[in-house]
Design a protein around this nucleic acid. Structure first.
Length: 948
DNA sequence: ACAAGCCACATTTTT
DNA sequence: TGTGGCTTGT
């Protein structure tokens, strides 16, 4: 990327190195550019990297920032390796490792954070542990029986804990940390306002009509069973057009002591449970870092940074805002973001952090300074710098995108804001070549592909090139953005049928899908290993409440239908048949299910595994976070399909926003969590356990029903999502829906066209994509032809004790992260050897580089793709390194082919340097140079991927 | 025009 | 669980 000259606003930001600044950085306004320049400027003003904290949203962004800073200043990559440029999570992680041993003591918890405390990233594994925890918890606490009875899903309680942690509500051993309890109680006055708003009469054609609240309470008792103290519908809706104001208080005031006690005890004991098992989750990382910085004044003051910058501030949570304040030693605080792009509410990001920055800043300073002055700097003066000049899109696209923020997302929703209230962006380019179009079709996926075929090679959709000229578009220029992953996967399947080249972004974590989780549960039942865990999952899935599950497990009185299903499974001959049977029962018939069937069948054929072996295979895959790509990711000219979330920060010449349909965008149906924490009503339970009619029964909580009717649903984030999708487009922007378009689609100022796709199946003469296939000689395992032959599966499987797939993956993962400059500790001798090896390299390190090599095979052009573990680039040489955890050298000939491919790719990338491929054997620390094979020989070792 | 009641429909995003 | 589309009643 060429580095342009900053515009006036950008320069203001770059040079404003003192005081509090909020940068309202619209989409495509050169935010990253300005931040890195500002960082470089700080260094040139004499700040050391250690003085400047730069917080990013992802680890990738942190790496990119570092690279771009290196390009702008005198520091080298290795000098910035340990500079505090990171995410909140990794910063907290490092902080706790160094100073956090006793952080839990501030909550009254004796357990420590030690060197062996690990971050547990895998949610499935954590959910599994939490389930175990909760089961023990309820046995130990019969006093919580009444609330526990209400639960139907353990992960919803875990999710509640995460939410509380993100909002700064922490437990102590005997109460709540600081003013946590007030948040749980809620804010009645704030609720009253919401109540009044929902209860205001509506304007009809002739006079007032009933309020939204009264309307939504119609059918109050239908399909519900309330406790006897609930008012009848007639009584509740007696008033007209509004219901009586007394109901605000009647509904809000409720005895919640038992609920609060339950949540408290679960929360604090789960923290202890985790610490004793030497793990923390993402939430606890931030929780303990916050507590530590809050309580240890000397530490906070010694750490405090002279400069703090936070990027993507619209996606920060309450706790992260407060962490930033605790880490800032001066008022040199700069937050950068765009409220219009806040799309991570489900991670408890609070748009208000940036929308009401000044108010929150003052409130949080006051809260943090309660009995001790933690935030010493003044917060009265805040300078806002708006970045409005957009270097990405045409004015047509920018003008339309503002409408996304004001479209009603349901038929009845009315929005007060108008387009004129939205600050617009100014396009830098004066071009007006944009096509903006919308289409609907009964077969939407085919219509999209059809449209793509029209676009490619068509100068009506010409695209800006770097030099300001227009050029003909290719597949590469097109991105299809979707709200749900599912549609993307389906689109890919259809694209494969019609031969349209698609790169679906991000492999699927196959073993973290519902399918795999249920499968693992049934296998545990069948093998009678951990069958209790298996049954728990199966029963929860079937809709039993946790209390019922506990009872069934204790009495081993499983439902008859399940037992006979189990017996049927036990009689099956092969694992493949068992898997198919299970999926059939649950109606799983999608890509994940069929990939699992294929993969597991293959694994069991290859090694004649028993059920126990299969269970361990799945467990290890989970542990290694194996991403088995369901679909191949071709490297050549292909369209991009990704979720809108994944597209954040990216840009594409042509964007098709797809699947803007009812039920999908916005997605319908919310959680059925029984315990919730919502602002401003606080902690509530939707159901109540009572014996009011003689027998224990779960009653609906009428108060919650009234409260939630006042809260309504907020579709702002869905609109922002649409806005983000639209502002990814540089040149052309299209919208697509099926037969039942979402109001988001219908209400945009567009004239949709109804389309009948005329796609022909075309499998001809297009560049084929293939994964590099290397067959590995296997000494004792019969070779199965695995289509999913990630080599690791075959080479390392069960070869040696403790050196399986998981081991290989871990070593690679460690190597990747270590080389990328992350603070990871080696966990095995192999990893120590990798570390020593990397420490000995003095050039630039490039990690996990994608390699694409076009090869002619007969008449066909084939692209081989692979990932290079490490490139070590010095002034005159480039070294290719591939890590292998093999104990033998059996496979070296095959590896030679693989390295040869990389060799030719890298030669092309660095024509003027010497290129040397090498294998690093981690078991001995041996570096083995490889003599690459000539290009001509390589075509013989690729095979088409058509059978995929 | 308005209110009320009934039915069918589909379950997301990921540091 | 809420939404939209329908019918029925005032």
């Amino acid at each position: 990327m060429t580095e342009p000259t900053p515009n006036a606003r950008q320069r203001e930001l770059i040079e404003a190195t003192e005081g509090i600044h909020v940068v309202d950085a619209g989409a495509g306004t050169g935010k990253t550019f300005a931040i890195t320049r500002r960082y470089a400027n700080l260094l040139s003003e004499g700040y050391e990297p250690d003085d400047v904290l730069l917080v990013t949203f992802t680890n990738n962004a942190a790496t990119e920032m570092k690279e771009r800073v290196v390009a702008r200043c005198d520091y080298s990559m290795s000098a910035l390796r340990d500079a505090p440029i990171s995410t909140f999570h990794s910063f907290c992680h490092d902080l706790l490792l160094e100073y956090g041993a006793d952080a839990p003591s501030y909550l009254g918890i004796d357990d420590q954070i030690t060197g062996s405390t690990k971050l547990l990233e895998n949610e499935v594994i954590e959910a599994d542990r939490f389930r175990t925890f909760l089961s023990q918890f309820v046995d130990a606490h019969p006093e919580h029986e009444a609330v526990f009875r209400v639960l139907n899903d353990p992960t919803s309680v875990l999710e509640l804990i995460r939410e509380l942690a993100a909002k700064g509500v922490f437990p102590t051993v005997d109460g709540w940390y600081r003013d946590g309890e007030a948040a749980l109680d809620g804010d009645f006055e704030a609720f009253e306002e919401l109540f009044a708003e929902a209860n205001a009469p509506n304007e009809g054609a002739n006079g007032a009509t009933q309020s939204d609240l009264r309307d939504s309470l119609s059918g109050f008792e239908r399909d519900r069973c309330f406790l006897p103290d609930a008012p009848g519908e007639g009584e509740l809706r007696d008033g007209y057009p509004s219901i009586d104001a007394k109901w605000a208080e009647e509904a809000f005031v409720e005895d919640r002591e038992a609920l609060k006690d339950f949540v408290h005890d679960v929360y604090v004991e789960y923290i202890q449970f985790a610490l004793r098992r030497n793990y923390l989750n993402f939430s606890f990382l931030q929780l303990f870092a916050f507590v530590l910085l809050c309580e240890d004044h000397a530490l906070r003051e010694s750490i405090a940074f002279e400069q703090v910058m936070v990027d993507e501030f619209q996606d920060t949570s309450e706790i992260q805002f407060k962490l930033a304040l605790l880490l800032a030693g001066t008022d040199n605080l700069c937050v950068v973001g765009d409220w219009k792009q806040s799309i991570y509410g489900f991670q408890y990001a609070a748009v208000e952090n940036i929308r009401s920055f000044e108010r929150r800043l003052r409130t949080y300073k006051r809260e943090l300074n309660g009995e001790y002055e933690r935030v010493g700097f003044p917060v009265e003066e805040v300078t806002t710098i708006p970045l409005r000049r957009n270097y990405r899109s045409t004015q047509l696209i920018l003008d339309l995108s503002r409408h996304a923020l004001t479209v009603p997302a349901t038929g009845s929703e009315s929005i007060e804001r108008t387009v004129d209230d939205i600050d617009g962006l100014e396009a830098d380019s004066a071009r007006g070549h944009s096509t903006i179009a919308a289409f609907t079709s009964a077969s939407e996926r085919e219509a999209i592909l059809d449209r793509i075929e029209t676009i490619v090679g068509n100068d009506d959709y010409a695209v800006d090139d770097e030099n300001g000229d227009l050029r003909t578009p290719s597949y590469d220029d097109i991105a299809v953005l979707t709200r749900t992953r599912r549609f993307g996967r389906e689109l890919q399947t259809t694209a494969d049928e019609f031969g349209v080249p698609v790169a679906y972004e991000g492999g699927v974590k196959l073993f973290e899908t519902d399918q795999a989780i249920l499968l693992l549960a049934w296998l545990r039942i069948l093998a009678d290993e951990d069958s209790r865990r298996g049954w728990a999952v199966v029963l929860e899935r079937a809709g039993y409440t946790l209390a019922e599950v506990e009872q069934i497990l204790d009495e081993r009185a499983y439902p008859d239908a399940m037992v006979s299903f189990q017996e049927g499974l036990a009689a099956m001959e092969s694992i493949g048949a068992i898997v198919r049977q299970i999926f059939e029962r649950y109606g799983f018939a999608d890509a994940s299910a069929s990939s699992l069937v294929a993969l597991l069948q293959d694994v069991s054929d290859g090694t004649t595994r028993n059920l126990g072996g299969m269970i361990r295979f799945i467990e290890r895959s989970l542990d290694a976070e194996a991403t088995h790509e369901i679909d191949d990711n071709p490297g050549g000219d292909s369209i991009t399909v990704q979720t809108i979330h994944a597209a954040k920060g990216l840009e594409h010449p042509i964007v098709i926003v797809a699947n803007i349909n009812r039920y999908s965008f916005p997605p319908s149906g919310g959680g059925d969590d029984r315990i919730r924490f919502e602002d401003p009503i606080g902690l509530r339970q939707t159901k109540l356990s009572s014996t009011a009619h003689g027998r224990p029964h779960l009653y609906d909580n009428w108060r919650y029903r009234v409260l939630s009717a006042c809260l309504g649903r907020d579709y702002d984030e869905e609109r922002r999502l649409l806005y983000v999708a639209m502002t990814r487009a540089q040149d052309h922007l299209l919208f697509s829906a099926g037969v039942e378009p979402s109001p988001l689609f219908e209400n945009l100022p567009l004239e949709p066209e109804s389309v009948e796709p005329e796609l022909k199946e075309s499998g001809i003469d297009r560049t084929e994509q293939t994964r590099l296939q290397v067959s590995i000689p296997e000494p004792d395992v019969p070779a199965g032809q695995s289509p999913h032959a990630l080599m690791d599966d075959r080479v390392f499987e069960d070869r040696e004790e403790g050196r399986g797939i998981e081991f290989g993956n871990r070593v690679h993962e460690f190597a990747e992260r270590y080389a990328a400059g992350e603070a990871v500790e080696p966990a095995s001798d192999d990893e120590r050897r990798v570390r020593d090896f990397i420490d000995g390299l003095d050039g630039t390190l490039l990690v996990e580089e994608d390699a694409y090599l076009p090869v002619a095979v007969g008449e066909q052009q084939v692209t081989i793709s692979g990932v290079i573990d490490l490139l070590h680039v010095t002034e005159d040489r480039v070294e290719i390194v591939d890590y292998k955890t093999d104990l033998t050298r059996d496979a070296v000939d095959e590896y030679r082919k693989q390295l040869s491919v990389y060799y030719h790719v890298v030669r092309h990338m660095y024509p003027d340097r010497e290129v040397s491929p090498a294998i690093f054997y981690t078991a001995e620390g041996d570096r083995l140079e490889i003599d690459p094979r000539p290009m001509g020989e390589l075509s013989g070792l690729v095979s088409s991927n058509e059978e995929y």
